[in-house]
Computed example of a mutant assay.
Amino acid sequence: MTEFSHLNASGEANMVDVSDKESTQRTAVAQAELSLSSDILQKIREHTIAKGDLLATARIAGIQAAKKCADLIPLCHPLPLSKVTIEIDEYHDGDEVGLRVQALCKTTGKTGVEMEALTAASIAALTIYDMCKAVDKAIVISKIRLMEKQGGKSGSWVREHD
């Protein structure tokens, strides 16, 4: 098993020193899912959520979250993001319906953008919950996960199974 990179020799948390690492292009894609009632999904389709344009607001929230990741997660390095996109699509799985949020983040740097992508997907999902909670508080946010990453010393990785 790999040792935790954020612990020093005494076991104390610290920020990883990336100063000797080579800058490379890095990309990460993360996802979050929201299980919704059919009523909420219909209101989203009809653009009748009382708080306004749900999808645009969630996309902007996700982008802002990626940009603020280092402020939210204590040991993350601030990164110059070159691209952040948020895609939100419906899914249907048997009786379950909902929205799938996918965040893509890119940078050229010395450390990866996995945390930025995960933060973006999470905050976009939380924004959807916030805008829909007046209709139904039983929304479930789940499956927040990294789907793929590229670049850096460890190379490419793609999730094989959900």
Rank of each mutant, 00 (worst) to 15 (best):
A117D: 07
E116S: 12
T111K: 02
A120C: 00
G94H: 01
E114W: 01
V101G: 08
G94M: 05
G109R: 09
L104R: 07
Y91S: 10
D93N: 14
V113M: 07
G109Q: 05
E116T: 09
E90G: 11
G112H: 07
M115T: 11
A120G: 13
C105G: 02
T107F: 05
E96D: 15
G112Y: 04
E90S: 13
A103V: 13
G98E: 12
I88W: 04
G109Y: 00
A121Q: 05
I86S: 13
D95A: 12
E116Q: 13
Y91I: 03
A120R: 06
T111I: 14
D89E: 06
E96N: 00
S122P: 10
G94Q: 05
E114N: 11
L118F: 15
I123G: 14
R100E: 10
G112K: 01
Y91K: 05
A103K: 06
L118G: 09
V97G: 09
S122E: 03
A124I: 03
S122D: 09
T108F: 04
C105L: 00
I123P: 09
R100F: 11
A124M: 12
E90C: 10
I123K: 14
A120E: 05
V97T: 10
L118D: 15
K106F: 01
L104K: 14
L104M: 15
H92W: 03
D95N: 11
G112M: 00
G98V: 02
L99W: 00
A121V: 01
A120P: 08
A117F: 01
D93W: 00
G109S: 00
R100P: 03
G98N: 11
G94N: 13
V113L: 03
G98I: 08
E114R: 02
C105K: 07
D95L: 08
T119M: 12
E116V: 07
I88K: 04
G98K: 10
R100H: 10
V97K: 13
M115Q: 07
G112E: 09
A103M: 03
E114T: 05
V97L: 06
L99A: 04
G112F: 01
L99M: 01
A124C: 07
I88S: 04
A124N: 07
K106W: 07
K106I: 10
D93K: 09
E114Q: 15
D89C: 02
A117Q: 04
M115I: 05
E87R: 13
I88A: 01
T107A: 12
L118E: 11
K106S: 14
L118I: 12
K110G: 07
T111L: 12
K106D: 13
T119V: 15
D89A: 13
Q102W: 10
S122G: 13
V113N: 11
D95W: 00
T111H: 08
Q102H: 14
R100G: 06
